[in-house]
Design a protein around this nucleic acid. Structure first.
Lengths: 192, 192
DNA sequence: GTCTATAGGAAGATAGAC
DNA sequence: GTCTATCTTCCTATAGAC
């Protein structure tokens, strides 16, 4: 917090944290490299030393959350029982959302980040949606379930990232979001 | 579709429809006046003839949906019984979402439009959220209900605007979204 | 009512000094 | 590793011709 011996090396880390904050406040496309540089107290060129392009910053900001979500989906899809797949996905999704609150809110609410990631990831946002919904509702024709799953996923992501719940601690928020998700997906309210 | 006698007067209407489509595809800040002009087959200056600024276009695009939502909230808040307030709000909200699908999706998923409207509306998005949630959950300390309401509102808006359900007709989608909303808010499944 | 032309500024990005 | 200086490109916006 205070005087560490070196602010030198973690400039990259500070940059990513600052970028995420600014992206959240102003959107990806509403955030210029100048704004990031100013907030960091350096110049635009200094930012370019760490990242060759703005897209690289966006990717680096989004990566931890995406990797985690990707893994959760993989794990879930490999389970044998349908109920287990859904429970694992729901739990993992909520965990990821809560752990990366700001990022998830940004990701689900900013067309800019989705566009940027679509250029580089083989799994852009849409593919995540498709994979997640594929696990949650296997019969595509089941409109009722499809709508419920859609509302659950979108709602959990947005609510989890909402400033309204910024003051709620992780465990409590996780519990509440899980409860809502289970209700919408018709799962029992208590799972390991 | 084909040769109407006059494309002359409704340039403004075509412009707004085109703008909404482009805003949805590329985000508000990702849409330039040049793009709007090109899509319309006119020049940038022609666009400036109808609207003095880009913000004016954003406002004009958003206005119908916002006005409708504003009215629904007002009507709901004037009802005497708590259950009636919630039911009216939920029904009206779902109706508005379905009627203005693309706009609502845009509005709930683009930081650009919220920022623009905050500059001119006395009731920016946040105020809508506050008013809506105030009706849906009167005890602010009721976290469980607050989370459920948040998920409901955000989820209904995003799901309603999702391209996934673009092929679903208004009545069916309305019915499904209402059902999900009532489940989350603990309301009986059938109301006039 | 629509156009050409262009001003003025800000954005992303690069080269090279320190 | 951070800076100054500069380039190019794109955007909003205006003035004025047709």
């Amino acid at each position: 917090m205070a005087a560490g011996p070196a602010t030198q090396e973690d400039t990259r880390t500070r940059l990513l944290a600052t970028a995420l904050r600014l992206f959240t406040e102003h959107g990806v496309e509403g955030t210029s490299l100048q704004m990031i540089a100013d907030a960091l107290g350096v110049t635009k060129a200094a930012v370019y030393y760490h990242f060759k392009t703005k897209d690289e910053i966006v990717e680096a900001v989004a990566e931890p959350g995406l990797r985690e979500l990707d893994q959760v989906i993989d794990e879930a899809s490999r389970l044998r029982r349908r109920g287990a797949r859904i429970d694992h996905l729901l739990t993992g999704f909520v965990n990821t959302v809560v752990r990366h609150r700001a990022l998830v809110a940004l990701f689900s609410s900013d067309p800019g980040i989705a566009r940027t990631l679509a250029r580089t990831w083989t799994s852009p946002q849409e593919n995540f949606s498709v994979r997640i919904l594929g696990i949650l509702v296997e019969e595509e024709s089941d409109l009722n379930r499809m709508v419920a799953a859609h509302v659950a996923v979108a709602g959990i992501a947005l609510a989890g990232g909402s400033p309204q719940f910024a003051g709620v601690d992780d465990d409590t928020l996780r519990e509440q979001l899980l409860d809502v998700g289970r209700r919408l997906l018709g799962r029992p309210r208590r799972v390991s």
